[in-house]
Simulated assay, not measured.
Amino acid sequence: MSLGTLVLRYGFFAVLATLANLGTQRLVLLGGDEARLFLPALAIGTLVGLVVKYLLDKRWIFFDPAAGLGAHGRKFSLYTLMGVATTAIFWGTETLFWWIGGTHAARETGAVLGLAVGYVVKYNLDKQYVFRQLE
């Protein structure tokens, strides 16, 4: 795959996962007290975005042929582990914008910025540690 195709595909998948994440957060935040629901919304949205991004990356970015529950379990565990640092970038940026701006628009701006930086870092970690045997 050419570098241009990789960047476009990875970027498109990042956008899809971001929309899944933020859409889930909005659904959770509709449940009432936004201050009380902020952390659950962040966590549930992150999980949904993580699963969406893993499935897309595994198949269309890294072309990983491994199948079965055991293979997916190992890969998803490593994929999730690589996402810990990048999630800290995302959550920190989103939370900072939420505190400063106090609006959904500010929170989501911070989320998009944090996710964009985090996804660049995550691609490199995934390539080196999760899907490296495919090179």
Rank of each mutant, 00 (worst) to 15 (best):
M1T: 00
S2R: 01
S2N: 07
S2L: 04
Y10P: 07
Y10A: 07
G11K: 06
G11W: 02
F12C: 10
L16K: 04
N21D: 15
L22N: 05
G23P: 08
T24I: 05
T24H: 01
Q25A: 11
R26K: 10
L27D: 11
L27I: 14
L27R: 05
L27C: 12
V28F: 05
V28C: 14
L29A: 01
L30A: 11
L30Y: 10
D33P: 12
D33R: 11
E34C: 09
L37C: 03
A41P: 06
L42W: 07
G45A: 08
V48H: 06
V48F: 03
V48N: 07
G49M: 09
G49R: 05
L50N: 08
V51N: 00
V52D: 01
V52W: 03
K53I: 01
D57A: 07
R59Q: 05
W60A: 07
F62C: 01
P65V: 05
A67L: 07
L69T: 01
F76R: 04
S77E: 02
S77N: 03
L78H: 06
L78D: 01
Y79L: 09
T86R: 05
A88D: 09
I89E: 13
I89S: 15
F90G: 09
L96Q: 03
F97R: 02
F97E: 08
W99D: 08
W99A: 10
G101N: 08
G101L: 09
G101C: 08
G102E: 11
A106I: 04
R107H: 03
G114L: 14
L115K: 02
A116L: 15
A116G: 12
V117Y: 01
V117T: 08
G118P: 11
G118H: 00
V120E: 12
V120C: 12
V121L: 13
N124L: 07
N124F: 15
D126Y: 06
D126M: 02
Q128R: 15
Q128S: 13
Q128P: 10
Y129I: 02
Y129G: 04
Y129L: 09
Q133T: 04
Q133I: 00
Q133H: 13
Q133G: 10
Q133F: 04
L134D: 00
